[in-house]
């Protein structure tokens, strides 16, 4: 049974009940289902007929050379592509059964259910506290107690609490690169999404900070479904349960990560992961 799958109309869900669902990876259930999705910017088609299922509470990695459409597909999953003019999406994407591109869907609600962490850490020029509770304030929550709780919970969830608990009032921009990225993760999980999308979250970080984020991803998997775009094949191999390889806007291969890296079925995949191109 799922704790929080019912469609919510307004407001934000503060998850207080203890999860009853088994937390092992790869439950086999599908959190996102992508069916025949194509996308074009004007006349330029960026995604060609992609279909795949993303498993509940798994880490799914999208890999592929630059411009292969992996980030574009990721941004379809919470409709961030809506911000770009002249984008056409065809096909169907459902998040736990809800068609997120149907006209009846509230796009704000979709983005609350599907949070996002970006390549470039982008904290707001506000205090650490305000950064974390931003999504809650936007949703109209102003109860100090609820915000305080959410702030601590999210910062703990993002493994940042111990480093910043004494300076929550300081600017979020005063943190180090890795801390800023974890602050962005805290901000994303503060609104209790079901799914977190990560667009190359470590590409601007040093190896130590990268390691911390990877550990964090591993622990977040207990509660969230995570989709991560990465250029770092070792990273994909380390953190993900399943990996999808994209090439020129097409899904070439999608499989369990160990299988993908040891026994790629497709020649292109093999060439890419062995470093022959990309």
């Amino acid at each position: 049974m799922t704790a929080v799958a019912s469609p919510q109309d307004t407001g934000i869900r503060i998850r207080t009940e203890v999860k009853t669902q088994e937390t092992s990876a790869g439950t086999g259930q599908s959190a996102i289902s992508i069916e025949n999705v194509s996308l074009s910017y004007g006349d330029n088609q960026a995604l060609h007929d992609i279909s795949m299922e993303i498993g509940e509470r798994q880490v799914t990695a999208f890999i592929g050379p630059s411009g292969c459409g992996k980030s574009t597909l990721l941004r379809c999953l919470n409709r961030m592509n809506d911000l770009i003019d002249d984008v056409t999406v065809t096909g169907r994407i459902t998040v736990r059964g809800q068609d997120i591109y149907s006209p009846a869907t509230d796009v704000i609600e979709v983005r609350r259910r599907v949070g996002m962490v970006f390549q470039k850490s982008n904290p707001f020029p506000k205090s650490i506290y305000e950064n974390v509770v931003y999504g809650l304030r936007i949703a109209g929550i102003s109860d100090k107690k609820v915000l305080d709780e959410a702030c601590e919970r999210s910062l703990r969830g993002a493994a940042l609490w111990d480093e910043v608990k004494d300076r929550l009032d300081e600017s979020g921009l005063g943190l180090s690169g890795g801390q800023m990225q974890r602050l962005c993760i805290a901000r994303a999980i503060a609104v209790e999404p079901e799914i977190i999308l990560m667009d190359e979250p470590c590409s601007a970080l040093d190896p130590i900070a990268t390691l911390k984020i990877e550990e964090l991803i591993y622990s977040l998997k207990e509660r969230y479904t995570i989709v991560i775009v990465t250029h770092n094949l070792q990273q994909a191999a380390r953190v993900s349960d399943r990996t999808a390889f994209f090439w020129l806007g097409r899904l070439v291969e999608y499989d369990q990560t160990p299988d993908m890296f040891t026994r790629p079925k497709d020649k292109l995949t093999e060439d890419y992961i062995t470093g022959r191109f990309g």
Partner: peptide, 15 residues
Amino acid sequence: VPRSMREASIATGAT
């Protein structure tokens, strides 16, 4: 104002 900052806000569910 960097685009990334706007996207961060939109992605947390802001209009």
